[in-house]
């Protein structure tokens, strides 16, 4: 049985640790502190926690002001509301003046499940990635999430970290060091490479095993640092394996798949197949049903790998 751990639990715990070691760390939330786990911080540091009510735009602006006043604000809510409702506040009040604000959003992607498309975020990576100066991180598991949060606190400048509602199978046994702009090669392959982020990193590892049974050798890269992207790792994969499948719990438009395709097409064109949420609104349902519908399963990724290989042969 795979060990499952919650990214948001690890966020909550890590934020408390950071709060203990640095009194300038503060947290804000928009009436979802139980869900995002900033409630843990609120309990220990009530004076340094600001519940802003259901007002995401004001939260981002207030966080920017706290940063201008020397604090290190962590602002949390669901991914769709953080990046959608407050996109322009993030762009104008946070990223443009390089405010030291950390946006840590939970409930990214479709594993949000039953709440339905109104609460599923398939656009957040795209929205954040297009903002100059924004660092965008999508951790593969709870351990990587915890270290990304620690890194964000030590880095000066705006950061977006995307977490999820659901627990993820762990990819890393325990401590995992996050390095911005660097990916983690989890498996070397010869025929193609999966470049994945979030829970799809684990799914890609499962797909790799399926493909190995058919004699196909796939590499797997955990690309938690989506911006800045580890371009060298992407290009090495393109050169060494000649085909790439990107995998993410995000729209095929504008996310990791786009970032990889942009790099590959400009610097070393090889086939890139993007596995992700199709360009549509899905449905309510269990996370499993939704991931199945989006073909974000080991079998779905293995199918993408075969398509990539067919394209590679045609070249």
């Amino acid at each position: 049985m795979t060990n499952m751990l919650s990214l948001r639990d690890f966020y909550g715990k890590t934020l408390v640790e950071l709060g203990r070691s640095n009194k300038d760390v503060v947290a804000l939330d928009c009436d979802l502190s139980g869900s995002t786990r900033t409630s843990m911080f609120a309990k220990e540091f009530p004076d340094r926690f600001f519940n802003m009510g259901v007002a995401e735009q004001d939260m981002m602006g207030t966080a920017a002001g706290l940063a201008a006043g020397g604090k290190i604000p962590f602002a949390s809510t669901f991914a769709i509301f953080a990046t959608g409702r407050a996109w322009e506040q993030i762009r104008q009040s946070i990223a443009y003046p390089d405010a030291n604000v950390k946006i840590v959003a939970s409930h990214g992607g479709i594993t949000v499940g039953q709440d339905g498309p109104s609460h599923q975020a398939g656009e957040d990576i795209s929205l954040m990635r297009s903002i100059p100066g924004m660092t965008v991180i999508v951790p593969a598991d709870a351990h990587e999430a915890a270290d990304a949060v620690r890194w964000a606190a030590s880095h000066v400048g705006p950061v977006y970290i995307r977490l999820t509602r659901d627990k993820f199978p762990v990819v890393y046994d325990e401590k995992k060091t996050f390095a911005v702009g660097k990916s983690t090669s989890l498996k070397k392959g010869k025929d193609l490479t999966f470049v994945a982020c979030g829970m799809l990193t684990y799914v890609a590892l499962e797909a790799e095993k399926m493909l190995a049974n058919d004699g196909i050798s796939a590499g797997v890269i955990d690309m938690a640092s989506i911006k800045p992207l580890d371009e060298q790792a992407v290009l090495d994969a393109a050169v060494e394996t000649g085909a790439i499948v990107t995998a993410e719990e995000h729209s095929i438009i504008g996310g990791l798949g786009s970032a990889v395709a942009e790099t590959v097409s400009e610097k070393h064109p090889v086939p890139v197949i993007r596995a992700g949420i199709p360009d549509t609104y899905l449905s309510s349902g269990t996370p499993e049903e939704l991931m199945e519908a989006a073909h974000l399963t080991p079998k779905g990724l293995a199918d993408c790998a075969r398509r990539a290989l067919a394209l590679k042969k045609k070249k």
Partner: peptide
């Protein structure tokens, strides 16, 4: 909002 943040 930013002014509020400065005041906080």
């Amino acid at each position: 909002s930013q002014a509020n943040g400065l005041a906080l």
